[in-house]
Design a protein around this nucleic acid. Sequence first.
DNA 1: CTGAAAGCGCTTACAG
DNA 2: CTGAAAGCGCTTACAG
Lengths: 329, 329
Amino acid sequence: MTTRARMADVARTAGVSTATVSRALSDPTRVDPATRDRIMDAVTSTGYRANAAARSLRVRRAGAILVLAPNLANPFFNRIVVAVTQVADAHGLAVQLADSRAAPERLATLARDGRADGIVLLDASLDPAVVRGWPLPVVQACEWNAAYAAPGLAIDNHAAMGLVVDHLGGLGHRRILHVAGPEGNVLASARTEGFVAACAARAVQGSLEAGDFTMESGARAARAWAARPDRPTAVSCASDECAIGFIGECWGMGLAVPRDVSVAGFDDIEVSARLAPPLTTIHQPRARLGAAAAERLIAMIGGADHAPEWDVMPAHLVARGSTAAPPAS
Amino acid sequence: MTTRARMADVARTAGVSTATVSRALSDPTRVDPATRDRIMDAVTSTGYRANAAARSLRVRRAGAILVLAPNLANPFFNRIVVAVTQVADAHGLAVQLADSRAAPERLATLARDGRADGIVLLDASLDPAVVRGWPLPVVQACEWNAAYAAPGLAIDNHAAMGLVVDHLGGLGHRRILHVAGPEGNVLASARTEGFVAACAARAVQGSLEAGDFTMESGARAARAWAARPDRPTAVSCASDECAIGFIGECWGMGLAVPRDVSVAGFDDIEVSARLAPPLTTIHQPRARLGAAAAERLIAMIGGADHAPEWDVMPAHLVARGSTAAPPAS
DNA sequence: CTGAAAGCGCTTACAG
DNA sequence: CTGAAAGCGCTTACAG
């Protein structure tokens, strides 16, 4: 616990004013080379770093971005947060992390206490009036809520479900179950609607089971599915975690994937490619989405316009071992 | 992008000085009830939140803690970060997140720019001189480096390997492979040493394969294992991710777990209980470790002593379907 | 119970 | 190229 050097200490050591130290640090070309060298030596010998609070009070900028996500324990958000952190780091910005499901009071503080210059928002279920009231630029990623009036990026979730139904239908499945995401979630809705539309267009018999993206909900869905007299031969889960829960529960019931049932996920989280069998799923380029969202946000903080356009990237299905032709029956 | 209200705005609206507003906000009992009500009304109508930079410049406290972790993409760190966030939130502190493998220059800034009042450090492979030089309290979690002279918490990694070897030996395995963690990592060393010691004590034939906790290294180890003429009948992986990679690669080679080989992991990440088969592993109470580390750090920030004691919690094995008796051969 | 004033550690016009 | 001075928005002794 050494005590921290202030700019005044550096100035005294180098025999200059704090103004000159400040200039030497922010734009070295504006000070005499000899002076600059003395200052840099003083910085090194004192271990000086500018106090972020003083600096941001003065320049009215936090030098940080806030990542707001629901359920940070969800591995899906991992890579996104990592990507945001890397981009922020490259721009010399700090990253603050908070739970989007915090109390309204807390959210108001997060948006207004000046700790962050912008927000990467990974939750589309907040009150739009609240989000619009934030005095900071906001970029959404993965989940989109038009009422936020904020730009964002995501893959085409609706179209993705067409790929899933095509894939399963192509393998010969005529009865497909979709285990949905939580009600009120825009991603979940887009996927459910995409599924229903795709089934209708392809004359596949689709059915729905409630879920909420979690492994637990996948396990529950598996029990409900197994109890049906007319078991669908293939299952599309709204998330990889849900699919993992479904497959795990099948294993517990003595059923094997894809021998007894084909299962597809959504997200392509890290572990999916390594499962036994590997999981067929829709790839979400999470690192790319996170990095792009961070870049966009930083541009907005720098003055770029806030037009609430939405960048939709094409979806992409990764076929793996968890899906195969239906049992002969 | 509404413009933010300052304390002076609230004071003017309520017809008092900023000093009184400040008092009403920090300790409502110190101002007259009628005055207080006027102030609170003004706060509500203006949407005022104290500027964190100004406040922390004045009180010389950031009101935030920094979580420093290597490889944030690793699901192992997830729950820990969530727990830290929850505890911090309960104490009104913000959470800053950064990668412990950042450049030395960046680490120096993180520790000295005054953005954080303390650090939860999840990486034991940093230069001890660097860590000791930080002007902030530090608490370690999971990984411990005595040279940091900072307190911390973890489970007994050495003893845990005794439980693994006991479990596998009890099932009848006499040849066991340990896929180690990365060289130089204290956790990896403790586990490897624990494994070797346990094998010696129990007359089990132990062997080692290099790894680095990742799924990819587990897959590599599986190929090396499969190529051996004297395949061990059971495998202990230094992390769950490694075990998942091992099992996935076995599946690719047409081998089944636990029919052809028993596999145990280490960590008990969320997904492990849902795998098919579920993974036998050592449970790490990550949420508890993270919360306890945060509580400890906050106490230290508040003035509690920094004695570098290490809290070691007993390890606990969770037996699941990925381990069974060896093949009859 | 309340206010005037100082000061936390920076940056930035403004002079020179 | 450099310095003196003001001010960012708070909190906290110090008076009253």
